[in-house]
């Protein structure tokens, strides 16, 4: 439950870039959200709506793109999508080791909440 405070940070970044570019209005915002984060997309959108009221963001569209979790192995150097264990309809969990050699991995994507692009009117 940190969607609202995260969205406050997101709105701050959007405002910074919008003002720097003399925007009269922000029309659309593209946000990348990693699948390993605990950010619910609907709650992010709801928070965005509340925070944008009365600002140049009001009425703009927030487009959220889910970003897949990817890894690189610290030992054998292999990389790819983070493997998952899938069992039945309700159990799909990521696993955190190298599918090639079994050792420790580094997560290279899937943990972000990145403002990718904004569309503005000047």
């Amino acid at each position: 439950m940190h969607e609202f405070s995260t969205m406050q940070g997101v709105v701050g970044v959007i405002m910074e870039f919008a003002e720097k570019n003399n925007a009269k209005k922000v029309l659309r915002v593209y946000l990348d959200v990693g699948e390993l984060t605990f950010l619910n997309h609907e709650q992010l959108k709801f928070s965005y709506q509340i925070l944008s009221e009365g600002t140049i963001l009001e009425g703009s569209e927030l487009v959220i793109s889910p970003i897949k979790a990817r890894y690189v192995c610290k030992h054998c150097g292999s990389s790819g999508d983070l493997p998952r264990i899938e069992e039945g309809d309700h159990f799909s969990v990521p696993v955190f080791y190298c599918p090639e050699c079994g050792k420790e991995i580094e997560i290279t994507s899937g943990r972000e909440c990145r403002v990718r692009e904004i569309e503005i009117e000047t």
């Binding site: 870039f17 919008a18 990145r114 990718r116 569309e119 503005i120 000047t122």
Partner: peptide, 16 residues
């Protein structure tokens, strides 16, 4: 009235 696409590329969680 002009329409612009601004590249941002800022990650809020990366700040932490």
């Amino acid at each position: 009235m002009f329409f612009h696409v601004i590249s941002v590329g800022k990650d809020i969680l990366a700040v932490n």
